[in-house]
Amino acid sequence: VPQRAWTVEQLRSEQLPKKDIIKFLQEHGSDSFLAEHKLLGNIKNVAKTANKDHLVTAYNHLFETKRFK
């Protein structure tokens, strides 16, 4: 089981690129989880459509539901 890579403050910070969060989610989330949160596909394309709040919610949801690969 992966550990949380970032704190809530870090997740919301401008310093953390959306692409980093997407990469983490794609590496650790199950396909059904990723599909549900519309996070499947090319990281660049996902970054265009997903806002930061959406990614933070998905990140927290992944750990709450433990839907890891």
Results as ranks from 00 to 15, higher is better:
Glu36His: 09
Lys52Ala: 05
Gln3Thr: 11
Leu55Lys: 00
Gln3Arg: 08
Asn42Phe: 10
Val46Gly: 03
Ala50Met: 10
Gln15Ser: 12
Leu11Arg: 01
Asn45Arg: 13
Lys52Ser: 04
Glu9Leu: 03
Leu34Phe: 00
Asp20Leu: 10
Gln26Ser: 04
Lys52His: 04
Val46Asp: 04
Trp6Ala: 11
Ser32Asn: 11
Ala58Cys: 09
His37Met: 12
Asn51Ser: 12
Trp6Val: 13
Val8Ser: 08
Lys52Cys: 09
Lys38Phe: 12
Gln26Pro: 00
Lys66Cys: 12
Phe63Trp: 06
Arg67Gly: 08
His28Pro: 00
Asn45Pro: 04
Asp20Gly: 04
Ile21Arg: 01
Lys18Ile: 13
His28Arg: 04
His37Asn: 08
Ala5Val: 14
Asn51Met: 08
Ser32Phe: 08
Arg12Ala: 13
Ile22Met: 04
Gly41Arg: 06
Val1Tyr: 13
Phe24Gly: 01
Leu11Val: 03
Phe63Glu: 01
Asn45Phe: 15
Val56Phe: 05
Gly29Trp: 01
Glu64Arg: 06
Phe33Val: 01
Phe68Asn: 03
Ser13Lys: 03
Phe24Tyr: 08
Glu14Cys: 08
Ile43Asn: 06
Gly29Pro: 00
Asp53Tyr: 06
Lys44Gly: 14
Ile43Thr: 09
Lys19Cys: 15
Glu64Met: 07
Val1Pro: 10
Leu39Asp: 01
Lys23Glu: 13
Gln15Met: 09
Gln10Arg: 02
Glu9Gln: 03
Ala35Cys: 15
Pro2Ile: 08
Pro17Ala: 07
Asn45Trp: 14
Gln15Lys: 14
Thr7Asn: 07
Leu34Thr: 01
Asn42Trp: 10
Asp53Ser: 07
Val46Pro: 03
Asp53Met: 06
Ser13Ala: 04
Phe33Cys: 01
Phe33Arg: 00
Trp6Asn: 10
Leu55Ala: 03
Gly29Leu: 01
Tyr59Asp: 01
Thr57Leu: 11
Ala50Thr: 13
Leu39His: 00
Tyr59Thr: 02
Leu11Pro: 01
Ala5Pro: 15
Glu14Leu: 08
Lys66Ile: 05
Leu25Arg: 00
Lys18Asp: 09
Lys18Pro: 15
Asp31Ile: 14
Leu62Gln: 00
Leu62Pro: 00
His37Glu: 05
Ile21Ser: 00
Arg4Gly: 11
Glu27Arg: 09
Val56Ser: 05
Arg4Lys: 08
Ala58Thr: 06
His37Arg: 09
Leu25Glu: 00
Glu64Lys: 06
Asn51Cys: 11
Tyr59Arg: 01
Phe33Gln: 00
Ala35Ile: 12
Thr49Trp: 14
Leu39Ala: 02
Glu14Gln: 11
Arg67Cys: 15
Leu16Val: 15
Asp53Val: 05
Asp31Thr: 12
Lys48Ala: 14
Glu14Tyr: 07
Asn60Tyr: 07
Val46Phe: 05
Ile21Val: 08
Ser30Cys: 11
Arg4Pro: 15
Gln26Cys: 06
Asp53Phe: 05
Ile21Cys: 01
Ile21His: 01
Phe24Gln: 03
Glu27Ser: 09
Lys44Phe: 14
Ile21Thr: 01
Asn42Tyr: 13
Ile43Trp: 11
Thr57Phe: 14
Thr57Tyr: 13
Phe33Gly: 00
Ser13Val: 02
Lys23Gly: 07
